[in-house]
Design a protein around this nucleic acid. Structure first.
Lengths: 113, 113
DNA sequence: CCATTCAGGACGAATTTTGTCCAAAAGTAA
DNA sequence: TTACTTTTGGACAAAATTCGTCCTGAATGG
């Protein structure tokens, strides 16, 4: 039913964007001023993109920057979980912590109980 | 309903364990062979513990090692989310990725579509 | 006062990450 | 085949980060 593309990752997403635009690595790389070999590695998830690069890529492909960033960050977290021990519970706990810490209305009192 | 202690973090947890045992930083530090200044920082979440250290601490305090590890890893993820941009959706997406990747029964064919 | 605990800065050493370059592989077309 | 282009991937040094240790000072408790 859903036609959202789940289960992909940042690199594949990027490659799809590029291929849909009918461009080569070199073309994209040169216009956003990044080494094409580096961009190739990023597409294969062998190197992480900088935040600035994500910004540039989003603007180049007219893609949603936040969406791309989410894709990348969730990749990082997923891979981390997987090579630690793969326990999904870690994410549940993390979620509770984020929710809780955010209710601290940006109040800077960290340690205060 | 649940009486799990949510909303704490690894460092506080560790400090609680130590204080409940009525021990000083120096005492704990010396028996598990770690610099006490380093241990102090870990309790204040200013330095990350090594995995080996978590193991040693768990055994020293007769605590559940996996639980401690989960506490630490979820901290790391939560803090990362918060200082990146703080979207809970990232965790949802990460969860889907982990679930999916785990169904790939440890099959090592990564890139293969 | 003295003694002890804890906080926290500073330092170099070790490790990791980063971008670049180069060459080999893979693909495309003649 | 040859010639050309794209992609892959290894190697490298420089930059950045992490790590453990040491030292000083603040705070606490007698």
């Amino acid at each position: 039913m859903e036609n959202v593309k789940i289960h992909t990752n940042f690199g594949e997403h990027l490659r799809t964007l590029r291929e849909n635009a009918g461009l080569t690595l070199r073309e994209v790389a040169s216009t956003i001023s990044v080494d094409s070999s580096l961009l190739a590695k990023i597409e294969r998830n062998q190197r992480p993109p900088t935040k600035q690069l994500i910004k540039n890529l989003a603007s180049f492909f007219h893609a949603n920057e936040k969406e791309l960033l989410t894709e990348f960050l969730s990749d990082q977290i997923a891979y981390k979980i997987l090579d630690e021990d793969g326990d999904l519970n870690i994410l549940k706990v993390a979620e509770e912590k984020v929710s809780y810490l955010k209710t601290l209305h940006n109040g800077n009192d960290y340690d205060k109980k």
